[in-house]
Amino acid sequence: MMSSEFFTTWFLPGIWVTIQVTVYAAALGAAIAFGIGLARTSRLWIVRFVAGVYFEVFRGMSALVLMFWMFFALPLFGWQLVPMWAGVSALGLTYGAYGSEIVRGSLAAVAPAQREAGVALNFTRWQRLRLIELPQAWPEMVPPFNNLLIELLKGTALVSVITVADMTFAGNLLRLGTNETTPVYSLLLVLYFVLAFLITRGMRVVERKAKAGIGQTPQKTGFITRKLSARGESVQAGSQSAGGMG
């Protein structure tokens, strides 16, 4: 059975590294998600185009291959990344691309009539985005962001492959040292599940706050963790027509 010494020297710090990688990659991913997501709604075609290329490239990319590439190939271009930052970057860049689709879709789903009301009150485009469209799109973004965040948490296990000492890395070390595979990997799986559960609980609170902020009460959802939308990660852009002629 695993010694308590090993647990405290490798496993506990590993849990902390997993949390750190998740938080940093989520922060980078969120920045990219909003940056690229907003750019994809730009009026300028060149901005839309560049953001679209980013989206297609990083969505098509395998996170693990990208991570390997950043770890092994990028240094030869003169960019030596600390393993942890190679991992965080690869995760943030790919999951940010998925997130941009959530941002774009939720913004597109804000009723066009709301934009028109903003025009009628003479808001600028940026004021409309900041005061009307983003606050209304935000509650719609939270559940898909929750799913994405859990995918990201699961993705952080990949950093163990490029020698970042997260909890999966600790588990692999322990296997090499003791051959006690059953308790090690069982514990690992349970730990990830618990972290995913905590994230879902936290995001549930965020969702409730967000909905309350627009005067809605959220409906109760699934009992264990989360509901996936049947269309994978994409958000369906609702199209509500805004009345044309008299």
Partner: peptide, 11 residues
């Protein structure tokens, strides 16, 4: 669904 594929492969 809520645990990493990588660790499942190790398992």
């Amino acid at each position: 669904r809520n645990t990493p594929l990588l660790v499942q492969l190790f398992f």
